[in-house]
Design a protein around this nucleic acid. Structure first.
Lengths: 143, 143
DNA sequence: TTGCATTGGTAAAGCGACTTGACGAATTCG
DNA sequence: CGAATTCGTCAAGTCGCTTTACCAATGCAA
């Protein structure tokens, strides 16, 4: 049988991601935010109280603005978010959280933190921080 | 500006994976295996010399057999692989590497190892092993 | 001040890597 | 023997993106 430790790093990374993603999904469900997919929950966390522009959100998530558009479209359709014109630039719009959006953002933050701290407990603070540091270095590398 | 170390672990994992994936893609290109996508290269490594059943491959990659079918279909269409009946079970077929498949598998292995050892050098052996161990634990956790 | 490149949002299409569901044919089990 | 399981396959759908192409508002340069 092929065991985990024979696998290449990219498989390991992908599996870890998928595992976390499923955990987040379950955590959202548990907190009554089951209508949110993990990616939407993550997007919600990027919007700040004053509202944020679409392209700024895209930049924060490191995806194209078109990709962020789709996330925001969905979020808007489910009433978490609305777009209001930016007073300082007639081209731009601010993505603002609705009351529902605020509520679900709180649930999302808690869900994600719960998963994160479960991992942290499992690994121990030292190894958890080492993991984050190593991942950051792996990512930064390819410039 | 949002910095990397403020991000949640799942983003970090995904970014690291994508980064590695791009590195593997480039490495494949450099070694004349540019026609292979990283996922196909990874799949090729799972096939052993004697040939391997589709469902066994799927299990090794931790995906459904239908998903593996698509990978193998593509690999077959580009002449890396062919399906021969399994002599011990008339339901089953063995996925076998062609000459071209063997050649590309070698390139794939080298490409992936090159990327992997670049990471290893960057982190140092100790931290590299710690990374793998931590990722494995993160994944095993959610059972 | 006019003209041109840039920036912000959007629409449409497509893609990669999966998943779920449904099947027939061969095999194993009770 | 018959029922449940396993192997490969077909078909369709999903998710999270990307690329290409626009238009409208803005900033900058000549």
């Amino acid at each position: 049988m092929h065991r985990m430790n024979e696998l290449d790093l990219s498989h390991l990374l992908l599996e870890a991601f998928r595992s976390l993603d499923r955990e987040i999904e379950a955590a959202l469900e548990d907190r009554g935010a089951g209508e949110l997919r993990p990616s939407q929950a993550l997007a919600l966390l990027l919007v700040d109280r004053a509202g944020t522009r679409l392209s700024e959100l895209a930049q924060r998530a490191a995806i194209t603005k078109q990709a962020m558009m789709q996330l925001v479209d969905d979020l808007q359709e489910m009433g978490c978010v609305r777009r209001v014109p930016d007073t300082e630039d007639a081209r731009a719009k601010m993505v603002r959280l609705t009351a529902k959006g605020l509520r679900l953002r709180a649930s999302s933050r808690k869900s994600i933190q719960a998963v994160e701290s479960r991992i942290r407990r499992r690994l121990g603070g030292r190894r958890y921080e080492a993991l984050r540091a190593a991942l950051t270095e792996v990512t930064e590398a390819e410039e």
